[in-house]
Nucleic acid binder design. Structure first.
Lengths: 241, 241
DNA sequence: CTGTGTCCGTGTGATAACGCACAGATACAA
DNA sequence: TTGTATCTGTGCGTTATCACACGGACACAG
């Protein structure tokens, strides 16, 4: 007791949990726990960022909003990642919006403290850069996935990612919201979801989706899911193992 | 004479040209000029990288190759950028392939020298990180563009990017190759190109495309072109201006 | 328990892009 | 000049997705 311990709440975020003790102790005073509610906008497109967020139980979605109002998700971050890359990459902001997709908790850290620690060039910097590369893989794969795969395959992929981050089979999410994430029509999601339900992979009623057969979902998803997951493990596995 | 001067060939790459003199002098011995031929594969997916490339007149395309053999471009780098981000981000490799899309020259730099300079935390590091963010914007925009815009809009965007990098109106490129970049069928490109030709925006014959009316091309392209360009200028403008 | 809003199913027609197949045209080499 | 490879135009049937529209079902508050 009294000793700052890595088996702390902050541990629940894999990136924070991967830090060596000395770096963690230095950072800890700057980590402020916050509670994030569904739909909350963490960052608006083009807005100067003040904090970087390390989700623990929350899931945050990175969305692009086009001029005509349609939206599409380019990436997702949960306790495996962070939100606010632009702060240490030098841009201070991005053209995307960050929205809370699943309510929960996170730690946030002010820009100044972040940059102080980042510039020391320690493990913190290494992890942040590696995570950034992993996010680039996620975004890249989303790009090709949007081009080459069907809505149903993409829905499977999206459900699997959520499953990994939530670690529960129940997902509170309407078809309409999923459609906004995938950048397709609500009907398209309804049809794909109906198909998956009839095959027994999922079950849903009014805003909650239950995943019944994860293995089958993986088989029904496109390769993109696995590529991104494997690349994350390759880049960060040795830290968070 | 004898004085290492920034008005050097290396200057032709904007990122190198943006370095302060002391950093440039330190790096110069490690910059090896290379000539890149059309179709040459700089990096294979998953292959350990040895060099980072700073194109001067060449254009390099970042491609994803799916399991079924179809391809799609996620980004492009010319004298405005570099190829080999994974080297300083820590991953050493990426799941994408880098192919020479337009023959020309580049400088390459060994991994070791790159990391030595990067870890000093100077302007070099700042520029590389900012460029990385700009590339993320490019990839993200490609993702949503693939989802939401037509082949014709995307073709316009692609032509404009090439125009910016080549600084000539003539582009040596068949419909088939463009189709591989955009991740669509060759016929789709032929039809879109035919349409643009009939409107007088471009002209083409057997593997060479001439851009006739750049302003009209910008109007026919989706917003994605401008978003990415503006973000590049925002991130790097103050260095390369 | 009744109203109102949300969520999902379904239908119809339109459009964009796909896959395949082949013909005409051009370039280049023998 | 002739042959061959490459490049582009076009047609046809198929599929995925879109846009719009509406009805039924459920949830929850008053």
């Amino acid at each position: 007791m009294g000793v700052v311990n890595k088996k702390d709440d902050a541990q629940m975020n894999h990136l924070i949990g991967a830090l060596p003790n000395d770096e963690f102790i230095r950072l800890k005073p700057n980590l402020e726990p916050v509670s994030l509610s569904l739909g909350e906008v963490i960052y608006e497109s083009g807005e100067q960022l003040k904090y970087i967020y390390f989700p623990t139980s929350a899931i945050i979605s990175l969305l692009y909003i086009m001029e005509n109002g349609s939206t599409a998700e380019i990436g997702m971050a949960g306790n495996d990642g962070l939100v606010g890359i632009a702060l240490y990459m030098g841009g201070s902001t991005t053209p995307s919006r960050a929205v809370v997709q699943s309510a929960g908790n996170a730690f946030r850290m002010p820009s100044l403290a972040l940059n102080d620690e980042f510039s020391l060039g320690g493990v913190f910097q290494k992890i942040l850069l590696r995570y950034t590369q992993s996010l680039m893989t996620q975004i890249s794969q989303t790009a090709v996935c949007n081009r080459l795969h069907t809505v149903e395959q993409q829905l499977c992929r999206w459900l699997l990612i959520n499953h990994d981050l939530l670690r529960t089979n129940k997902l509170i999410m309407t078809h309409d919201l999923i459609a906004n994430m995938l950048g397709v029509r609500r009907e398209g999601v309804s049809i794909a979801a109906g198909h998956l339900q009839s095959k027994g992979l999922i079950k849903y009623v009014r805003g909650t989706i239950t995943m019944l057969d994860r293995d089958a979902l993986e088989r029904a998803a496109c390769e993109c899911y696995r590529v991104v997951k494997d690349e994350y493990d390759r880049l960060l596995g040795k830290y968070i193992s």
